[in-house]
Amino acid sequence: MTAQEYNQCVDEHADGVYRFILKNIKDEDKARDIVQDSFEKMWTKAGDIEFSKAKSYLFTTAYHTMIDAIRKDKKQTELNEEAFNKHQVNNSYSDLKEVLNQAVAKLPEIQRHVIMLRDYEGYSYQEIGEITQLNESQVKVYIYRARNFLKNYIGKPDMVI
């Protein structure tokens, strides 16, 4: 991958990676650091990475960097999520996006990751499996469970959509 192709990756994927990370860890500074780290890692291996595989490499790297960061800061993240959920639970929602965001925040971590990769980036089961190091069947099961949870959540009687 040339510097020009690398810069093209920045233009095309930096926002997507940032969005994916930010939605998962809800910390702008950390998300920014993870994106920068991921691009730096990609740059150091630019000579070995084909341009066509760059996006996958980028998301894989960002994903694992994020997982490391989450594990490192697990307790704090859980507290944040708890506070986030507590803050949101009694609110009345009229906007589907808000309801979905709340539902996504309640998903188990791995389900949240795979459903975001699926919906935000349109990755196939196989690609998501490569990124998350799951097999295709596991990815499919997690997506189905997540989808079912989201559907039931937004279909709850107290949710006004």
Partner: peptide, 10 residues
């Protein structure tokens, strides 16, 4: 409901 459960990137 399944149609609505698809996430959209912000």
């Amino acid at each position: 409901l399944y149609s609505l459960s698809r996430l959209e990137a912000d």
